[in-house]
Each structure stands twice: as structure tokens, then as C-alpha cells.
Measured scan of single mutants.
Amino acid sequence: EDEVKKIVKRLIENGVDDEQIKEIVKRQGVDERIVDKVLKELK
């Protein structure tokens, strides 16, 4: 989960929008619920 957080944070800093972040992270095989949780925490 910490790995996911790092990735998502980097994507947000690069101006990637939420939908794209979800797609990218899902392609890495991460559960969507984890992605949603991380996005909420970082906003």
C-alpha cells in the first residue's frame, strides 16, 4: 500500500487526473479500493 501511495503521489504531482491514475495503478494489478483509499488520503 505504501508503494501505491508513492506512485499515486508522483502521478498527482505530474498533473495526472484521478481517472488516469486509477487506470495506471489498476494495470499494475492493484485493487481499485486501495487506489480509491489512497486518492482520498492524498487529497
Score class of each variant (00 low, 15 high):
24 I>D: 02
3 E>N: 08
43 K>A: 10
19 E>W: 12
39 L>T: 02
14 N>W: 13
18 D>A: 12
5 K>I: 12
3 E>H: 10
14 N>F: 12
37 K>D: 05
18 D>N: 09
4 V>T: 04
13 E>N: 08
43 K>G: 09
8 V>K: 00
27 R>H: 09
9 K>C: 09
31 D>A: 09
15 G>W: 03
17 D>K: 11
5 K>M: 11
18 D>V: 15
22 K>H: 05
1 E>Q: 08
25 V>W: 05
15 G>L: 04
29 G>E: 03
14 N>C: 11
22 K>C: 03
11 L>V: 01
18 D>I: 15
36 D>Q: 09
24 I>V: 06
1 E>H: 12
38 V>Q: 02
21 I>C: 03
21 I>M: 02
24 I>Q: 06
29 G>I: 02
38 V>E: 01
23 E>T: 10
41 E>W: 09
37 K>P: 01
36 D>T: 10
40 K>N: 12
15 G>E: 03
21 I>K: 00
31 D>L: 07
7 I>C: 06
33 R>Q: 12
28 Q>I: 15
35 V>T: 05
3 E>F: 12
10 R>G: 14
16 V>L: 15
36 D>E: 14
27 R>M: 13
28 Q>K: 11
35 V>C: 03
11 L>N: 01
22 K>T: 04
30 V>F: 15
31 D>F: 04
24 I>W: 10
14 N>Q: 15
6 K>G: 07
14 N>A: 15
20 Q>C: 05
42 L>I: 10
7 I>E: 07
29 G>H: 04
38 V>C: 04
7 I>T: 08
43 K>M: 09
16 V>I: 14
17 D>M: 10
4 V>Q: 01
2 D>K: 07
22 K>A: 05
33 R>L: 11
20 Q>V: 11
7 I>Q: 08
3 E>S: 09
10 R>C: 08
42 L>F: 06
31 D>P: 13
43 K>I: 07
28 Q>V: 08
6 K>N: 12
37 K>E: 06
38 V>M: 08
22 K>M: 12
25 V>E: 01
4 V>M: 05
5 K>N: 04
29 G>D: 03
16 V>D: 03
14 N>H: 11
2 D>C: 05
38 V>Y: 08
30 V>N: 03
26 K>F: 06
19 E>M: 11
3 E>Q: 10
23 E>R: 11
26 K>D: 02
25 V>R: 00
24 I>P: 00
37 K>L: 08
34 I>Q: 04
7 I>L: 14
26 K>V: 14
15 G>I: 02
2 D>P: 07
13 E>R: 10
17 D>S: 15
6 K>A: 14
34 I>R: 04
40 K>H: 12
5 K>T: 07
9 K>Y: 09
32 E>D: 09
4 V>R: 01
5 K>Y: 14
9 K>D: 04
11 L>Q: 01
3 E>V: 10
30 V>Q: 04
18 D>Y: 13
40 K>A: 13
42 L>R: 02
30 V>W: 15
35 V>A: 05
6 K>C: 07
14 N>V: 09
17 D>F: 06
10 R>H: 14
41 E>C: 05
34 I>C: 02
38 V>A: 05
22 K>R: 14
30 V>E: 02
23 E>L: 13
34 I>G: 02
12 I>Q: 12
10 R>S: 14
28 Q>C: 11
20 Q>L: 13
34 I>W: 07
24 I>C: 04
37 K>Y: 06
39 L>Y: 03
9 K>L: 14
25 V>H: 02
41 E>M: 11
15 G>H: 05
42 L>A: 04
9 K>A: 12
27 R>E: 08
23 E>W: 10
29 G>S: 03
4 V>E: 01
27 R>W: 07
35 V>M: 04
39 L>D: 00
37 K>M: 09
27 R>S: 13
4 V>N: 01
7 I>V: 08
30 V>P: 01
14 N>R: 13
21 I>N: 00
35 V>N: 00
25 V>M: 15
3 E>R: 09
21 I>A: 02
27 R>K: 13
6 K>W: 11
41 E>S: 07
7 I>F: 13
36 D>V: 12
11 L>G: 01
34 I>M: 12
26 K>N: 05
27 R>T: 08
36 D>G: 05
36 D>I: 14
27 R>N: 13
6 K>M: 13
32 E>W: 11
31 D>I: 04
12 I>P: 00
42 L>Y: 05
15 G>A: 03
25 V>A: 09
23 E>Y: 08
25 V>Y: 05
30 V>Y: 15
5 K>D: 02
3 E>M: 12
30 V>H: 13
41 E>P: 01
33 R>M: 12
20 Q>N: 10
10 R>F: 15
35 V>H: 01
20 Q>G: 10
25 V>P: 00
23 E>D: 10
10 R>A: 15
13 E>T: 07
30 V>T: 04
17 D>P: 15
33 R>I: 11
30 V>G: 07
24 I>T: 05
43 K>C: 04
38 V>H: 02
10 R>T: 14
23 E>C: 06
33 R>N: 12
39 L>R: 03
30 V>C: 05
26 K>T: 14
34 I>H: 04
19 E>T: 10
18 D>H: 12
17 D>W: 06
26 K>P: 01
32 E>M: 12
33 R>E: 13
29 G>P: 02
10 R>V: 14
27 R>Y: 06
8 V>Q: 00
22 K>S: 03
17 D>T: 14
13 E>M: 13
41 E>N: 06
31 D>E: 10
2 D>R: 07
29 G>N: 05
14 N>M: 15
34 I>N: 02
35 V>G: 01
33 R>P: 04
8 V>F: 02
19 E>V: 10
38 V>F: 07
21 I>L: 04
9 K>W: 11
27 R>G: 12
41 E>Q: 11
7 I>M: 14
6 K>S: 12
16 V>H: 14
42 L>Q: 03
21 I>V: 05
31 D>G: 05
37 K>G: 04
6 K>Y: 08
20 Q>R: 13
36 D>R: 06
23 E>K: 10
36 D>F: 06
42 L>T: 03
6 K>H: 08
31 D>V: 04
37 K>T: 05
23 E>M: 12
6 K>V: 10
18 D>M: 14
2 D>N: 09
1 E>I: 14
26 K>H: 07
19 E>K: 11
2 D>W: 09
42 L>S: 03
31 D>C: 03
32 E>N: 05
17 D>N: 13
2 D>Q: 10
8 V>S: 01
41 E>V: 06
4 V>L: 12
29 G>C: 03
6 K>E: 14
2 D>A: 12
12 I>N: 02
8 V>H: 00
35 V>W: 02
40 K>Q: 12
21 I>H: 00
15 G>D: 04
15 G>P: 00
2 D>V: 09
21 I>Q: 00
4 V>C: 04
22 K>Y: 11
39 L>K: 02
2 D>S: 10
39 L>H: 02
28 Q>R: 10
26 K>M: 15
38 V>P: 00
9 K>N: 08
10 R>P: 04
6 K>T: 10
34 I>Y: 06
26 K>Y: 06
5 K>W: 13
8 V>M: 07
15 G>K: 05
14 N>G: 10
3 E>K: 08
7 I>K: 05
30 V>A: 07
6 K>Q: 13
5 K>S: 06
2 D>M: 10
4 V>P: 01
21 I>F: 01
5 K>A: 07
16 V>E: 05
17 D>H: 10
39 L>Q: 02
10 R>L: 15
8 V>R: 00
20 Q>H: 11
20 Q>P: 01
31 D>T: 07
27 R>Q: 13
4 V>A: 04
21 I>E: 00
33 R>V: 10
4 V>S: 01
38 V>L: 12
17 D>A: 13
14 N>P: 00
43 K>N: 08
2 D>L: 10
28 Q>L: 15
40 K>P: 01
28 Q>D: 07
8 V>I: 15
18 D>C: 06
16 V>W: 15
27 R>L: 13
1 E>Y: 15
29 G>V: 02
10 R>Q: 15
24 I>H: 05
17 D>R: 10
27 R>D: 07
40 K>Y: 13
11 L>I: 01
32 E>F: 07
38 V>I: 15
40 K>M: 13
9 K>G: 06
27 R>V: 06
2 D>H: 08
13 E>H: 07
26 K>C: 09
43 K>F: 08
12 I>T: 04
19 E>Y: 11
15 G>F: 04
39 L>I: 11
26 K>Q: 10
13 E>V: 06
4 V>I: 14
5 K>V: 10
15 G>S: 03
11 L>H: 03
13 E>Q: 12
17 D>G: 13
8 V>E: 00
16 V>R: 06
32 E>Q: 09
35 V>I: 15
42 L>K: 01
24 I>F: 09
40 K>G: 08
43 K>H: 13
12 I>W: 14
23 E>Q: 11
11 L>R: 00
9 K>M: 13
17 D>C: 10
40 K>C: 06
2 D>E: 14
19 E>P: 05
2 D>T: 07
35 V>F: 07
7 I>D: 03
35 V>R: 01
20 Q>I: 12
15 G>M: 05
